[in-house]
Amino acid sequence: MSPTGYGPDFLLDLYRQMVLIRHFEERVKYLFLEGVMPGTIHQCNGQEACAVGVCAALEPADVITSTHRPHGHALAKGITVVEAMGELFGRTTGCCKGKGGSMHLGDLAKGMVPAIAIVGGGIPVATGIALAFKMKKEKRVAVCFMGDGATNEGAFHEGVNMGAIWTLPVVYVVENNLYGASTPVSWVVRTKTISERSRLYGIPGVTIDGNDVLAVYVAAKKAVRRARTGKGPTLLELMTYRITGHSRRDPALYQPEEEKKRALENEPIGRFAKYLLDRQLADQRRLDQIAEEVDQEIEAAVEMALAAPQPKPEDTLQDLFVA
């Protein structure tokens, strides 16, 4: 945790957002296991600093694309807990009126297109969003969240290359959690880092500690500034770890125990709490209070979602075409 000089309100808000995402994921998992919530889920426990640090560097008008693991990105970009929870429950109050579900959370009004759950699929789309910003001479930035696995898709090559050749205002953010589903990244990537692939496209790439929310914020800020000032894309590789399964019932037996143990010591919320406490930017009571407030917000959202109307079956037939 190197950078200093940020106000306590800003820092505590980062902390609050990370706790919100973690508790949201934990509550959602519980609701699934209880059998209350339909569908499937891909959770981002342990990766909260990536979403929060990057989105803290964005303006509300900036637009992100996300993946099959979008809950953290959605909450960090400003989709409310009520809208997200409603969507996970498939209710009409959800951000996609129940048509999207966990894997397609999003709302353009908040600067997030529905999450794209085909690995790599969002990379060309974010590039196109950035192309529109450039063509319309708007000072907005597109951010493309992806996992390490997406960087082996053809869409990565095609999308990043176009972002580079046209000097577009886009930041490609790779959350490297060391596994593509169950396959270790070391089996499928020969280079030491993923960020060094940026050289092939003639854009800067950097690998940083993705569990250090301030380091993520600083790197994202730099990349976003570069994009916004017309200098083109950056490939940001954030080293992190998923401290839960790939999807709802995955016990992640492929993650070695020793590695998991280290990851738990390195997870971003505990680290940031220590940072805040060590510097006396907050006391434990304040942090506990944040957790409590967040839990109340989540519980209220669960109750609202459960009380919200189910879509009518024939609503299936709506929303395909404008006319």
């Binding site: 060309p124 789309v125 196109g128 969003i129 319309k136 869409a155």
Partner: peptide
């Protein structure tokens, strides 16, 4: 570039932005 999947995705992104 010769990137069909890429530029159809670019078209989509641009279209969503108006």
């Amino acid at each position: 570039p010769i990137s069909e999947n890429g530029f159809f995705g670019v078209a989509l992104g641009a279209a969503m932005m108006g």
